[in-house]
Design a protein around this nucleic acid. Structure first.
Lengths: 201, 201
DNA sequence: CTCAAGTAAGTAATCAATTACTACCTTAGT
DNA sequence: ACTAAGGTAGTAATTGATTACTTACTTGAG
């Protein structure tokens, strides 16, 4: 039997993370087995445990990758805009881009958050969303200060709705089975959100 | 060993559905085992299969219960209001009421929809949301006709956002671990949604 | 030659589903 | 009114699959 070409540990970890994210786009993340991951990267199941102590450890590595990639992209997008509302729209679209590129990610996040007992991966997921919410709240406050966003609305509520708006698009795409469709729906949905928070002079 | 008092089949099915919904509020629905369900209703695991052919059959029964309860309540609420926007607000609050009363339900729904392969329970979940979306679209069209809702916005987008808004609140409550908190947040979030769709004359 | 990275074949635990048996209720025949 | 028969709903133990993880051995690049 031919064996896979040997690779250094760090490279294998990266390939593993990639495989998990790809598989999560095709099936229910909680049903992804170590055997399935190994098969997808042309490796035997036991070999995975040369690079990860436990399966939880794999999930943690994946969540950390997601955290770094996602947060990095969002922060960079935010800083590329000066007007708060424009920044929010750009972040919205960047977020949509991200989830259409990696459709498994929102599934993993939501699935992880549902778990009853604490896991390192769940902690990473929680802090990711917490951090995201904080950035949004800061932007909304800016928008209120500059007069672009209405003072009438609650900052936290507006942040929750921003994320919920995307969540709703994702759910719709899961229903239709076509993740790419949310690219078309996103602008119209964001328009409604923007009408909801902007001030009318 | 003392055995549980015998009950007629139909009653046992109802008790089972109740147990599943209660358990789903406490833990990740996909991790609920037949043993856990049986234990929660003071029954042995094997006895469950006197009333349900398979575990999938249990899930289907639960989803059908949810479909009947939820749809019934929402439809009744819709018909109790004459103005479209008022009806939507009432439906929003009824929906929030429902998920705070049965916190396991949204988890089950979302978890079921994520599954790769089709199951009867997944089909029931899909048709529930499809039907709900259709009712919302009809209401929004009514609102446009009466001039309460802006013609500028897309009906389907507005319906997606309505559900997404609630989805966002649920996610926030899962994060905070306190499902009851969404009762407080709901009015403020709906207010933003309403600003987003209503016409400004 | 070494040893990190691989294979292949385990193990123990968990889970849905099955099986063999039992207790209780209803009902028909005398 | 009694009682034997049949059906229903329970128990307790077991089965076969699946899963995360382990162990003993093998390979090949530096």
């Amino acid at each position: 039997m031919q064996i896979s070409s040997k690779l250094p540990a760090e490279e294998r970890r990266e390939i593993t993370i990639n495989a998990v994210i790809k598989l999560a786009g095709l099936q229910n993340p909680s049903e992804i087995t170590t055997a399935a991951i190994a098969k997808h990267m042309q490796l035997t199941q036991g070999a995975l445990f040369r690079h990860f102590a436990t399966k939880d450890d794999i999930w943690l590595a994946v969540m950390e990758w997601v955290r770094d990639q996602f947060t990095g992209q969002i922060i960079r997008t935010e800083h590329s805009m000066s007007e708060p509302l424009a920044a929010m729209q750009a972040m919205f679209m960047r977020h949509i881009d991200f989830v259409t590129k990696y459709p498994g990610v929102p599934r993993m996040l939501f699935g992880e958050l549902q778990k009853a007992k604490w896991t390192p991966a769940k902690g990473a997921a929680q802090s990711l969303i917490k951090h995201y919410t904080e950035r949004l709240c800061a932007l909304i406050e800016q928008g209120k200060a500059s007069g672009d966003i209405s003072d009438d609305i609650d900052t936290k509520d507006a942040a929750v709705l921003f994320i919920g708006t995307i969540q709703g698009l994702i759910m719709q795409s899961i229903l239709s089975g076509d993740i790419q469709r949310i690219r078309n729906d996103a602008p119209g949905v964001f328009k409604i959100y923007q009408r909801g928070i902007r001030s009318w002079k």
